[in-house]
Each structure stands twice: as structure tokens, then as C-alpha cells.
Design a protein around this nucleic acid. Structure first.
Lengths: 157, 157
DNA sequence: TCTTCAATGGATAGTCAAGTCCATTGATGA
DNA sequence: TCATCAATGGACTTGACTATCCATTGAAGA
């Protein structure tokens, strides 16, 4: 249905979940079941992913009544790169596409220049983007929805 | 061994193979078996990938004695994006990470801004980079290796 | 204390990319 | 014409990623 993509499903789910948790604010913990609905992730699979994020120190968890997940740090201090690394993907890690043997700047492989360029850009993105971007996104969405509602209540002419 | 990565193995192999073909110049066709060695791709799998690249019109193939694969256009007119699209990846295609429902600029999802930024950068890279970059890389590698050889022949003092 | 809620962990099953094999087709040279 | 070379196409195997299920642990409220 989705076709092949840049990020794995797991990575995508992790980003969605973290963004959603960030957007709810630090007041009370978010239940996995809630997340699974709003973020559109299969509940039992999401549970696994949240565990990995918690193990990586990005989330804290509380069991039992009123429990759930919480960011372990302010959203502005959690980068996308950290989230991705917690699940499986390391956008900044080495490995040249063509360098299946040795490959470095000294003895570069055929694709080295183009590949280095892409990696730099990915790595910069992953480092620069934080979950705080998601929370501001949430504010924008809320604002837009309110505007929609008000427009709907006004009688059409 | 390689761990999860940005591009699928197939995509990586396709880039390697195309770069290698480009680097050999347009004079005579390259056999799949040769490619499989120099590009480090499993021979029977490479064969499948080359077929897809040929089906996409990026390569022409010749059977039998003296046969092999050739670029269908000058290297400078084949972009990485075209190569990736021929196998499976479309770096410029839509799909928002968070937009599992509807998501557009009008009603953006939480991750929309960050995601759009990444996509734009990937898409630009894929459009800008051509196989000609690989051929110039090949020249650089050759030059460097010659220098290494000459240094080795000179007696150490 | 007992019940309920929610995370934890592991066992299990489905799906698809990755990789292998082999028989066939088409072209070249002997 | 025959043998050889190389691409073609499809069937098949494997393993990792995706996903489900259930029994267990720990915490809060009744």
C-alpha cells in the first residue's frame, strides 16, 4: 500500500509517536493505546517501539493506572536523529555506497562525492530537526481546525 | 552485516552498477559478470537489476558473444533519481510520514514541515547528481592509484 | 486486599526484499 | 551447422522486518 520508501515503517512509527507525545505537552503521560489511534500505528507493534525508545532513554514509562509514556527531556532537546537511532536507522553512520571494499577521502570510490553530499544533507537534517518542530506544527493544525469550524458555523450565502 | 540504511540494497546495487558502466566509457558493452565483480553485487541478483534498468530505458543490452550492457544515453544525462526510480525508490514522491490520513500544505500533519524539508533536499540531490559525476570520480581514482604505484616503485630512503 | 489498568517480554505468524538456480532465447564465431 | 557466450525469465529459498497474541509485572484506586 505504501510502496518502498526512505525510512522503514518502524522509523516512521517512532517519529509519529514521539511527535504526538511531544505535541500533548509534558503534563500527563500518554497511553500507548491512545497513541496507536492518533498516530495510526498498530497497537501491539507500537508497544514494542515505545519500549525501544524508552530503553534508549528518550521516553520514561509509568505502569498501571494513570500510567503511560512521557518525554524524558524537553522536546526541543530531542532530535530526529536520536529517535531514528533508537530504533534502527543511523543517518550519519559511515558506509559508502560504492565502497564495498575500503573507501575514504584518500582513495574514494566512484560514488563517493555524490554520496558524501547526500549523507551530509541527511545528517544535517537529522541533527537540526527536533520534536519541538512537531509541537509548533500541532499548534498550527489546531489553529487551522478552529478556523474551519468557525467557517462551517457561519451560514453560507 | 550492513545494518539498516537509507537506500535499499537494490537501489545501492543499481547505483553502483550504473556508475561502473558509466566509468568504463561508451566503447564496448559491459558483461554482467564483470560488473558483479567490480561492483560487488551478487551475479544473479545483479542480472535482475540490470534487466529492470534496461526495461526502464536507461540501459541497452546485447545478447551473445561480445554482448553486455551499455548506457542508452550519455552519462551526463542520466540522473541518480532516474536510476533509483527504475528500481524502486522515488525520492520525490509524495507521502507524508505523519499523514496516514489526509495531509497537505492546507492541513499539515505534525511532521509535515520537517519532512517536507528532507524530501526537498533528497529530491534536489537526486535530480542534480548524474552518472557523469561517477566517471570523473573514476578518473580521480585512476590518477590516485598511479601516484601510489609510482611512490611504491621509488625506493624508500 | 482485591480489582483494574497499563507497561513488559517473549513466542508466534505473515510479508516482502534479497538472493539463488536453471532452462530458454538470441547472437557470434568456428 | 554446431558450440559457445551472454542476456532473459521464472520458480524457488532465505531472512529480516512487520505485526499479533498472551501471560506477567507493577502501580493506583476501590
Amino acid at each position: 500500500m505504501c510502496g518502498p520508501m526512505i525510512l522503514s515503517m518502524t522509523a516512521e512509527y517512532a517519529l509519529r509517536a514521539m511527535a504526538e507525545i511531544a505535541a500533548r505537552g509534558p503534563d500527563d503521560p500518554v497511553r500507548a493505546k491512545d497513541l496507536s489511534e492518533t498516530a495510526g500505528v498498530p497497537p501491539s507493534y507500537l508497544s514494542k517501539i515505545l519500549r525501544r525508545l524508552a530503553a534508549a532513554g528518550l521516553l520514561t514509562s509509568e505502569k498501571g493506572h494513570g500510567g503511560g509514556f512521557r518525554l524524558s527531556r524537553p522536546a526541543s532537546r530531542i532530535t530526529f536523529g536520536e529517535v531514528l537511532r533508537a530504533v534502527d536507522v543511523d543517518l550519519s553512520d559511515g558506509g559508502c555506497v560504492f565502497g564495498w571494499g575500503a573507501c575514504d577521502a584518500q582513495l574514494p570510490c566512484l560514488l563517493h562525492p555524490a554520496w558524501a553530499e547526500l549523507k551530509a544533507s541527511l545528517s544535517a537534517w537529522a541533527t537540526r530537526s527536533t520534536l519541538a518542530h512537531a509541537t509548533s506544527g500541532a499548534a498550527a493544525v489546531k489553529h487551522f481546525r478552529r478556523a474551519l469550524r468557525q467557517a462551517a458555523q457561519r451560514p453560507a450565502r
